[in-house]
């Protein structure tokens, strides 16, 4: 009843005054809306769809394998994205290299990418992505299965990378086959490195040691002995302002090395490991 009344009122009274609004004004209104509300607005009419798509910088997508056929239409609509999140749930088959490469071709200005449980992505997909998205500043990947080659491709191709967050990267878990990671071009730009729940995370050693401008290092629940690496890090990475060690196997040797660096800030030190 209320809806009917409203519709009638609108039909009689409301002129279409927003059509006179320039595109850039409409885009500014969209910028003040939440992601969900932007979605509603894009369905209002063709013009709003176009303006919303062109003015959107951030997108989060369900990275299920069935996304592939939609990549072309979705990413030609959103052609100004700078931040993208591809997130698959654990029980589903994720997008593969083909989809990631197709996305990277259409999103060459990406500065941030977040990958979650995209288990079908391989080193070669990551390498192609890295070549197309060289402006990347922030990479965050959790529960992915690609390995050192893919990670190195990112580090070699993205000279502006400032932030790297890696959690449960299964492709490096085998110490016998894993290659060292880094330093690559990104080593000079990286400011923050966070490694969580990695097996054989020590293969990031060359990257950490080579990152001369590193300000913050977080190592959490990464298995294996970190003493040796911490000694070298304390020695070589002189600008570190923050080191966060959590549930890590570190002995006095490693801690002494780190504590010898002045002006360090320890937000937390929980080391139930070997002392």
């Amino acid at each position: 009843m209320e809806v009917e009344e409203l519709a009638e009122y609108v039909l009689v009274e409301a002129p279409d005054y927003i059509s006179d609004l320039p595109d850039e004004c409409l885009a500014c209104i969209f910028q003040s809306l939440s992601s969900r509300n932007r979605k509603h607005c894009s369905l209002v009419c063709r013009r709003w769809l176009r303006v919303e798509g062109q003015s959107r910088q951030r997108l989060s997508l369900n990275a299920h394998s069935d996304l592939l056929p939609l990549v072309t239409s979705l990413f030609s609509r959103f052609d100004a994205l700078t931040k993208l999140c591809l997130k698959c749930d654990r029980r589903s088959v994720s997008i593969g290299d083909e989809a990631l490469v197709a996305i990277s071709i259409r999103c060459r200005n990406l500065t941030r990418i977040k990958l979650r449980a995209c288990r079908e992505l391989t080193d070669s997909g990551m390498a192609a992505f890295a070549k197309n998205c060289k402006a990347l500043k922030k990479l965050s990947c959790g529960s992915c299965t690609f390995g050192a080659k893919g990670m190195n491709a990112i580090l070699d191709n993205c000279p502006s990378l400032e932030y790297l967050w890696v959690k449960r990267l299964q492709g490096i878990a085998n110490a016998a086959t894993a290659e060292p990671i880094g330093p690559g071009l990104a080593a000079s730009s990286l400011k923050t490195i966070c490694l969580e729940e990695l097996h054989n995370g020590q293969c990031f050693g060359p990257l950490i040691i080579g990152s001369k401008n590193l300000k913050s290092l977080k190592l959490s629940r990464c298995s294996g002995d970190w003493d040796k690496l911490l000694q070298v890090i304390a020695d070589r990475v002189t600008g570190l302002a923050e080191i966060h060690l959590e549930r890590l196997q570190v002995s006095d040797t490693g801690l002494v090395a780190i504590s010898n660096c002045l002006n360090r800030y320890f937000p937390s030190r929980q080391n139930p490991g070997v002392y």
């Binding site: 939440s34 979605k39 369905l43 989060s60 299920h64 997130k87």
Partner: peptide
């Protein structure tokens, strides 16, 4: 739109 996540990230 069904592919887009909301209220995250």
């Amino acid at each position: 739109h069904a592919w887009a996540y909301e209220g995250v990230d």
